[in-house]
Design a protein around this nucleic acid. Structure first.
Lengths: 144, 144
DNA sequence: ATATAAAAAGACATGTATATCTTTTTATAA
DNA sequence: TTATAAAAAGATATACATGTCTTTTTATAT
């Protein structure tokens, strides 16, 4: 469903958020280690998230990644949109160039509720909520 | 969601099924043209479906692709399983190596219903049912 | 000022999905 | 039995996602 890039992005942001709560600004090496992702690639992903203003960064000694406005909910939808592009949420499950309820592909009736369910889930779910689950030991960020 | 290969596979099988109903055995060139897919790549996809016994083929003059048992329902699930592999249906939406209700990722609760919805849809939907929609003009196979 | 630690940037490498081209095999028709 | 039409097979090409390495920029501490 999601590409690795989106997966790393979400996991990384959750980790950064959790560390920020404790007043820390983790760097990409630490982040990659904690979310079990390739170090340099994770650096690139974080760089793109920074460019897209989903997160901020400081260079130099004591630098790292952090949220400017940690209290503002950041939905998974916004992250996926930045990483995968808006079309990700509207593509026809059958591969047709245009497909809607007026002119459906034969799979439209079954597929569009699934797609809507996914959209709803990622629009309602936030980095903050996921971080809470981690902190409450109701879920984990990594598993080897 | 699905890769192009699965999309072409499903569209091609629907077209073959419809043609078979009229006593014809289309070749890959005709199929590719009718489902708007790249000719040679479609040949490869059909070759794989034939190897996997989802469809049969005849070489030589008058040859082409056809179903041995057109009446036996062929679910999209079986096609996707062959093309994408079984893991396609169980991958964690968060990217964890292992993830289930016992040891969930933070997204599990929201994502697994979506994944189950998709699984249910493709297990209930068949090539025959999709072909019927096409024949009844309730859906289309291609749109440019 | 200088050394250090960190992200940013650019170049490069690998892998996988997607796509094309050419040759071979095989069934049928003439 | 020869020509033809079709799928199968193999080799190659392209695009994009994923991953790594090296250099540059920048902030901080000494």
């Amino acid at each position: 469903m999601l590409g690795k890039t989106s997966e790393y992005a979400i996991r990384a942001l959750v980790y950064v958020y959790i560390q920020n709560l404790e007043g820390k600004r983790p760097g990409f090496k630490e982040i990659a280690k904690k979310i079990d992702s390739p170090e340099q690639f994770t650096a690139k992903v974080l760089q793109n998230l920074t460019r897209a203003k989903l997160i901020s960064s400081m260079k130099g000694r004591g630098g790292g990644f952090f949220f400017d406005h940690p209290a503002t909910p950041l939905t998974l939808y916004e992250i996926i949109r930045v990483v995968e592009g808006e079309v990700f949420f509207s593509k026809c499950g059958f591969g047709l160039k245009r497909c809607d309820s007026e002119n459906p592909c034969p799979l439209h009736e079954d597929y569009s509720p699934v797609r809507e369910g996914f959209l709803k889930a990622v629009k309602n779910q936030t980095i903050q909520a996921l971080a809470n689950k981690i902190n409450e030991r109701k879920a984990v960020l990594t598993r080897l």
